[in-house]
Write a protein that binds this DNA or RNA. Structure first.
Lengths: 183, 183
DNA sequence: CAAGGTGGAAACCGATCGGTTTCCTCGGCC
DNA sequence: GGCCGAGGAAACCGATCGGTTTCCACCTTG
């Protein structure tokens, strides 16, 4: 086994918590990771800490799947995120943004994983704000918040309807960009 | 006891499932409702059926809290929904749209409660579409879907950030209405 | 007053929960 | 070769899970 128990645990946790919810038992988790419960409780203080750590670890990969490569106009770079999301909603295992899903399941706002979700969701908003600023928008922070709302609302729609977005997120974001004068 | 066991069960289920998630145990549920498990399993085939039934029962109340009274322009009637939502996000127990939250927690798209969520979420979209049509919008169905996306995205924002919307949903919806020419 | 149905209290079922502990095997390092 | 830490297997803890069953107290109706 070339990977460490810690890596295997975080990977398995990230996938299982997203696919089946944070209610997944520690036994099933450790079995999927090929790690003993003993090791898990040596590496993490509690299941809650593992939830937070796995979300923190998974988020960068999630961002990478959404954010655009270098180059392109701000408008195109922003729309790239919504096009990427549209593609994700067409995949069979899609269950919404992992950050939003976790925050929704963990009713406690003080849960360590909730702080992780807030921080990473802010990263997407920051990306939108930077692009809006580059485009010379009058109020880039407001536009960034609005785009984030469209992003998460699109995810919710795909989950509730259990079907792909079919371009609705892209067109909604486009309407906001047009209204803000982002050419 | 003037209420029936069925009513007490549905009320307690609607509140507990929203406040603590669908993972709440049947024991705690029955205790809160003042109903024996025996009666619960006579009235409902399973916990899953109870989840669906409680969501179906509670949804009309949610709608009533959001939808506007009679009168007013389509634009005002639509914005009333977002203003009402803004107020809800400021309340201490707010945990997002119950329909979206339930659909997110129940990873199974075939769960009976998921069909209930889809149906009631469609009711909100239908309201938006009717108002958009009354306003003479070119594509009322698309605008209605976009407004629903903004509604659910706003709810997600309030949950992840654990703070009130502070008008962001209203301004985002306003931007879409302006873009669509809804005066 | 008697009969029958409603529904609560509580025991019970096997399984699983989060978490702890014991034991033992393995591989690297002196 | 002997030692020591890492880490897997599994027993164990009390509590709780979804679900079933038994028993009995109450109310209504005749």
């Amino acid at each position: 086994m070339t990977t460490t128990p810690r890596d295997r645990l975080l990977d398995a946790a990230g996938e299982l918590f997203y696919r089946e919810g944070v209610g997944v038992g520690v036994d099933a988790l450790c079995k999927a990771a090929g790690v003993s419960k003993r090791s898990m409780y040596v590496l993490f203080d509690s299941k809650d800490e593992l939830i937070a750590a796995s979300l923190d670890r998974r988020a960068p990969g999630y961002d990478a799947a959404l954010l655009p490569p270098g180059g392109g106009t701000p408008r195109e770079r922003i729309l790239h995120v919504f096009r990427a999301q549209d593609g994700l909603t067409g995949q069979p295992g899609y269950r919404g943004c992992p950050l939003v899903a976790t925050a929704t399941e963990l009713k406690d706002a003080g849960h360590p994983a909730n702080a992780v979700a807030r921080r990473h969701k802010q990263a997407l908003t920051d990306f939108f704000a930077a692009e809006a600023r580059a485009a010379g928008v009058a109020d880039p922070d407001t536009l960034a918040a609005q785009l984030t709302i469209v992003f998460d609302g699109s995810g919710a729609r795909a989950v509730v309807r259990a079907e792909p977005l079919a371009g609705l997120g892209v067109t909604t974001a486009t309407a906001l960009l047009d209204a803000a004068g982002v050419g």
